[in-house]
Amino acid sequence: MAVSALRELSAELDFFTSSAAVSRELLELDLYPPLPVSPSCLIWGFHILKEAEEAGKDKLACRLLPDPTPPAMLRLALRLESRAGRYSWLEQEACLDFLARRAPAASPAELARLLSGKTDPRLPERIGSFSRLEPSLKKLVAEGLLDLKSASRLRLLPDSVYRRLAETAGGLTFSQRRLLLSRLEEIGRREKLKEPELLQLLAEALNTEDPPETLRRRRYPVLTGLEERFHSLEHTVLEKSGIRLEAPPCFEGEEFTVSFSFRSRAGLARKINRLRALEDQSDELFTLLR
């Protein structure tokens, strides 16, 4: 079929962005799957068509299907694409959207199987969650900068926050980004922050060495206060003593732990002296747990 004629056909199924490339050499030898077409629509092979145009080919091998239903066309396209489990969120969304527009009564169950390569009844629901995300948040997920589950939980942050974060995406790990956003939202909800205040807080956090930690301290002020008092006490009493003082995790419990090593009687005596100083401060230490 003439390449120019193929371009005249409907391209509503042209939504695969990561199709396996066809080499120019194979194209010249006509060693590629024939492109399925309906009377009005190119069903699959848009990447082959593009490559043919660039190579200056004027014809491509095609197979005309007389009257395929929309679900049959999508099924065929997915089978030829053959990337089950490796479709992007945007590709999956486009498939589901096509099905919803052209065959609203069709069950998405088979589509889910072709997309994921397994029985996954909740995939359509997840694709729906992706579709409902704010545009900039959706972009973060589509680009693999944030997972869908975390993104779906974020409901109250303005789009500008996600845009700002996307600008600095390279400077944060996946996990840091997730923590940063969830903490920012929780702080925003608790302190009833408005958009400019949220952006200001995000900017401040991003200017620090550890942005998620900066927000953790604001999100957990009481716990942070306990940590600061503990470290201050430890620093004052035990600095350079070689004695390690540990509080119970999250100040939950009743015991502190000290550990140290020594290699002489004099060394031991020095440690004991510093521990006596710690004993003098222990009332304050224990108030952290009471």
Binding site: C250, F251, L289
Partner: peptide, 13 residues
Amino acid sequence: VPCRDGKYRYIQK
């Protein structure tokens, strides 16, 4: 904060 039984509770203090 997480406690020893895996449940979350207000800070002990």
